[in-house]
Design a binder for these strands. Structure first.
Length: 401
RNA sequence: CGGGGUGUGGCGCAGUUGGCUAGCGCGCAUCGUUUGGGACGAUGAGGCCGCCAGUUCGAGUCUGGCCACCCCGACCA
C-alpha cells in the first residue's frame, strides 16, 4: 500500500491528554474524536479493528458459534418484557416518542428471535454471536477508547437445555477468551466479579493489567485468576492469600444468565419426556474498540505506538530514500511474500518519515537509501526492541520470516 | 448528577488584570535553498473569539443563562 493512496494524517501538535491511548491514537492518525466517548475509526485504526475481529471470528468458529447481525434499534416493549426498561433507562438513547431505543445489549432481541425456532431439546444448544455497535449513554465517558458511548462489541449468546450443559460451554468460552487475548498480545486474568443486573452469582471478567484501568483487581500471577475489588468482601479469607493488587482494564466479561431472560420472554423447549422448560442462557462480551485502546496503552513508548505484528495495521513501514525508487521492487517482493507493506512514497524529508514510522509503530521499518544500496543492503529496524541492522538486499524477506 | 478546569483561523496556544485595528507557533499555498530523525528563508491565504441575552458610545475582555470538552467523584448491563 502506498502512503499517498491511503488516508493517513498524523498530527504534530495534539493537546496533552491524561489518557495515553487517546493521545497516541489521535496523534498517530488511528482515530478522531467527534464527541465525548464517540470516535471515528480512521483507516489505520480500522485495520487494527479488523485484525482483532479476525482473531475473534476464528476463535468463535472454533467453539461452534455462528455469526449474525442484529439491529441497532430495539423496541422499548422488548425491554419492558424483561423489566430492563427501568434498570437500563439511564443509559438508553431514545427516539423522540420513546418507542425505539438504540440497543445497549442484545439479550432481549436474540431471545425473542429464538422463540420462533426453538421448541425441542433437539434444537439445543445454540451459540450465536455478532460484532456490532453498542450505544450506552455513559454518565461519564472517559479515558479515550476505554469507556465510550458508542463502541464495537463482540457479543455471544448461548442457549442450553440445562445448567450442566451451559457450564461446560461457559468454560469453553473462558478458554477461548484467554486464547483470543493472548493471540492479540495481551496477557489476561480471569477475575471473579459481580453479576450485575444479570445475576446474583459471580461473573467472570477478563482483565489486562494496566495503570489506566478503571478496575482494581487482586490476582494470583501464576494461575492468572483473582477477584475484582467490588466483590472482595464476599470472598472467603483463605482464598485471599498471596494475591497481588493492581489496576486493570476489563476487556471481556462472561455471564451465567440462567433462565431470567428465557422465562420473561417465554423461550421454552420440550424435554424428551414432554415437559416444558425454560432455556438456560449465557452471554459473553468482548469490547473490541476498548481492545484498540488497551493495545495503545500497553504498547507504546516516548516515540509513539509499537503494536504487535498480529494487530499492527501493516507489517512493514518501507522508506525509500533513493532517487531511483529502488524501494518499488522491494515493496513488490515483500507483498508477494505475503507481507503487508506501507510504502512511504511521499516527497518528504527522511526525518519526517522516520519520525512517523516510529509514531505509527509498525513492527518493522525498512530503509533503502543510496548509502545502503551501494553496499547491497537494506536497513531493518524492529520497532518493539529498537534493534537496527543491515541485511543483504536479497535476503531481506527471509530475515523477516 | 456533585466538584474542578478549559472553550480564540484546520491543530496547539497567548491576549481577559486595565473595554476601542485579533496575535503567535504548527499545518496549508507559491518561490528559492535544503535532503538519514517532524529543515531554513521570503511572500501569502485562512477567524460567527462556544451559543444566547444584558450593560455600554463601544465587548474576545464585564454581567447572567445555556452548551460542549477534559479531570476527580457517584454510576458502569
Amino acid at each position: 500500500m502506498r502512503y499517498s493512496q491511503f488516508y493517513i494524517r498524523t498530527i504534530r501538535n495534539v493537546a496533552k491528554q491524561d489518557s495515553a491511548n487517546a493521545y497516541l491514537l489521535t496523534k498517530a492518525g488511528y482515530v478522531n474524536q467527534l464527541a465525548a466517548g464517540v470516535y471515528t475509526l480512521l483507516p489505520l485504526g480500522l485495520r487494527v479493528i479488523e485484525k482483532i475481529e479476525a482473531v475473534i471470528r476464528e476463535e468463535m468458529a472454533a467453539i461452534g458459534a455462528s455469526e449474525l447481525l442484529m439491529p441497532s434499534l430495539l423496541p422499548k416493549t422488548l425491554l419492558e418484557a424483561t423489566k430492563r426498561d427501568k434498570s437500563l433507562d439511564p443509559i438508553l438513547y431514545k427516539d423522540v416518542d420513546g418507542q425505539m431505543v438504540l440497543a445497549p445489549t442484545h439479550e432481549e432481541t436474540l431471545t425473542s428471535l429464538l422463540t420462533q425456532t426453538i421448541s425441542s431439546y433437539k434444537d439445543l444448544p445454540i451459540k450465536l454471536f455478532q460484532i456490532q455497535t453498542k450505544f450506552r449513554k455513559e454518565p461519564r465517558a472517559k479515558s479515550g477508547l476505554l469507556r465510550g458511548r458508542e463502541f464495537l462489541m463482540k457479543d455471544l449468546y448461548s442457549f442450553h437445555t440445562d445448567q450442566k450443559d451451559h457450564d461446560a460451554f461457559y468454560q469453553q468460552v473462558a478458554d477461548a477468551y484467554t486464547k483470543i487475548f493472548e493471540r492479540l498480545g495481551l496477557e489476561s486474568y480471569r477475575i471473579k466479579a459481580s453479576g450485575g443486573v444479570f445475576s446474583d452469582e459471580f461473573s467472570d471478567e477478563f482483565q489486562v493489567l494496566c495503570q489506566t484501568g478503571e478496575d482494581e483487581i487482586h490476582y494470583n500471577a501464576k494461575t492468572r485468576t483473582g477477584f475484582n475489588q467490588e466483590v472482595i468482601d464476599k470472598i472467603p479469607d483463605n482464598q485471599k492469600n498471596n494475591l497481588k493488587s493492581a489496576k486493570a482494564i476489563e476487556v471481556g466479561n462472561i455471564f451465567r444468565l440462567g433462565t431470567t431472560f428465557s422465562s420473561a420472554l417465554k423461550l421454552n423447549y420440550q424435554t424428551a419426556d414432554g415437559k416444558v422448560k425454560p432455556v438456560v442462557m449465557g452471554s459473553y462480551g468482548i469490547g473490541i474498540t476498548r481492545l484498540l485502546g488497551t493495545l495503545a496503552e500497553v504498547y507504546n513508548d516516548e516515540h509513539g505506538l509499537k503494536l504487535p505484528k498480529q494487530v499492527a495495521p501493516f507489517d512493514v513501514y518501507l522508506i525509500d530514500l533513493t532517487s531511483e525508487n529502488l524501494g518499488q521492487k522491494l515493496e513488490k517482493e515483500l507483498e508477494e511474500a505475503g507481507l503487508e507493506v506501507l510504502s512511504d512514497d511521499r516527497d518528504e524529508m527522511a526525518g519526517v518519515k522516520m519520525v512517523e514510522a516510529d509514531l505509527i509503530g509498525l513492527p518493522i521499518r525498512l530503509v533503502i537509501s543510496h548509502k545502503t544500496a551501494q553496499e547491497g543492503k537494506v536497513e531493518v529496524k524492529y520497532r518493539a526492541i529498537g534493534e537496527i541492522k543491515l541485511v543483504d538486499r536479497d535476503r531481506v524477506i527471509e530475515s523477516l520470516g
